[in-house]
Design a protein around this nucleic acid. Structure first.
Length: 158
DNA sequence: GCCAACGTTGGC
DNA sequence: GCCAACGTTGGC
């Protein structure tokens, strides 16, 4: 089975692609997902080897900033059990975890951000979840055709 | 800073 | 189980 394609959003004020670049082995656990739709994707669909577009939201410029890959499939998000964590969730329990995370590793930082504006203006990306009005899901599936177009946009600026 | 869109909560 | 109220996301 071939790798699936995803887009992971992050607010760079909280966690940016540069933070990922500075991690040991440029790898981190993608914790803190507290939305059930995103959780279902993480837990059930996202597997080791899948490829990821990394997106900066609430930023200037906002857009796709690079690529990552999944290096560990879903396992319980222990930040949900940590009372000192901002992601603590009292409904979660060690023997019955609600929330999951995957580990991701940096693949590439694009030399320039592919801005949301540009994505919205690009033919073939009209149906991409990211470009839809009011789309807030922080983990999104990406179509093969959309991935290819974005790779072309990324190579143009090199 | 505003506010539309959307998910979640909680009263009933 | 419905749905209004509320909180959050995130583009503008």
């Amino acid at each position: 089975m071939s790798a699936k394609l995803w887009l992971f959003k992050a607010d760079p004020k909280e966690y940016s692609i540069d933070d990922l670049a500075n991690e040991p082995n440029q790898t981190t656990s993608w914790d803190g997902i507290r939305n059930y739709m995103a959780r279902n994707l993480i837990r059930d669909e996202i597997k080791k080897g899948d490829k990821i577009l990394l997106y900066h939201s609430n930023a200037d410029p906002k857009g796709i900033v690079g690529l990552g890959k999944v290096v560990r499939s879903a396992y319980p998000d222990d930040s949900a059990l940590d009372q000192t964590s901002a992601y603590y969730d009292p409904k979660s329990a060690k023997d019955n975890p609600i929330w999951y995370m995957v580990d991701i590793k940096l693949v590439e930082i694009f030399p320039e951000v592919i801005e949301l504006r540009e994505l919205k203006d690009t033919r073939g990306l009209e149906k991409m979840m990211l470009t839809q009005r009011g789309s807030r899901l922080s983990i999104q599936p990406v179509r093969e055709s959309e991935w290819k177009i974005i790779m072309q946009l990324a190579s143009k600026v090199k």
